[in-house]
Simulated scan of single mutants.
Amino acid sequence: MMWSNFFMQEESRRRGAAGRRRAHEQQGLELTPEHEGKVKLALLLATVGATLAVLSVGTEFWVELNTYKANGSAVCDAAHLGLWKVCTKRLWQADVPAGRETCGPAELPGEANCSYFKFFTTGENAHIFQRTTKKEVNLAAAVIAVLGLAVMALGCLCIIMVLSKGADFLLRVGAVCFGLSGLLLLVSLEVFRHSVRALMQRVNPEPPPAPPLTYEYSWSLGCGVGASLILLLGGGCFLGLTLPSRPWESLCPKRGHQAT
């Protein structure tokens, strides 16, 4: 009888401890209104970065290639390209600003011819103004950018789970995803810069001779830089929300008043 009572008390104690532990875990998963508001603000910031990232990767105004106006003709040639396709344009020199020595900007109305890069399908290099792309570098820039968008989408999913299910532990995962996506976009931008330099140097020796060119980076690349910085900032905000509000209290806990 004594042993049976002992086992029953022990079992009740274990069940009570398990219940308190489950209640504590459920309480830890719940977001307070203040914490939820901070998460939503950080998500709004990350959404701005995500929008800029999609806009940058999806458009082809990363760099503009411009020939010089002094060619003895009423028209001049320009081009703009991104990660996926290139557009060559024939512009009227009368539309080009008077103080500009080169043809452009590429946004001016003119006869345009756009095509996707063939190295995504057939593995062929593209030829732009008697210059040849270095497909390995272009492919690397595109793949890294797509990986950045995929990781960014995973971060958005984690934060949505935090707000909808109260899974507070996913904040750290979302912070890492947003920070990593920002870094990947920055790496993609740098690789693309190397591809532009390689394009300018790879001049075809066959006639006709390659025209002299200048290049300037355009607004799509600027959107990519802004998206990278905002995503890094958003990841830092999410990571800061996972830290205790007063971390020094855990390092230096206050001592209670001693009984006299």
Rank of each mutant, 00 (worst) to 15 (best):
E64C: 01
F61N: 04
W219A: 13
P247H: 04
G166H: 03
V196P: 06
T133I: 01
G155H: 03
S115E: 14
W62D: 00
G123E: 09
V162Y: 00
I144Q: 05
N138F: 10
A23F: 11
G123H: 08
K69Q: 10
L149H: 05
G256F: 12
I144W: 02
A145P: 00
L186Q: 08
Q26I: 12
W3Q: 14
P105C: 05
F178R: 04
R21D: 06
L108K: 01
E136L: 13
G28F: 10
A17R: 13
N113L: 12
Q26L: 11
R172H: 09
Q258G: 11
P205M: 03
A46N: 00
T260A: 15
M161G: 10
A23I: 14
W84F: 15
M8D: 15
Q26S: 12
A175C: 04
S181P: 00
C237V: 10
F238K: 08
H257Q: 14
Q27K: 06
G110D: 07
P208H: 09
C237L: 14
Q130T: 02
I160Q: 04
E25T: 15
A145S: 06
L183N: 01
V225P: 12
L91M: 05
R90P: 11
L229H: 01
G110E: 06
G58K: 09
R172T: 07
K85C: 08
L183R: 09
F119E: 05
R15M: 11
H127C: 08
A78T: 14
S181N: 01
E11P: 03
K38M: 03
L29K: 04
A227S: 08
N71T: 10
C237M: 12
C237K: 15
R90I: 07
W219H: 15
T122G: 10
C158W: 02
G234T: 01
L157D: 12
L180M: 10
C223I: 04
P97G: 07
G58C: 06
G72H: 04
W92R: 12
N204T: 08
L241W: 02
L154D: 08
L147Y: 00
C76K: 03
E107F: 10
S73P: 15
A106C: 09
G104N: 06
P33L: 07
W84T: 11
L43Q: 06
L83R: 03
V54E: 13
W248H: 11
A141M: 07
G240S: 15
A18H: 09
A50R: 07
C252A: 06
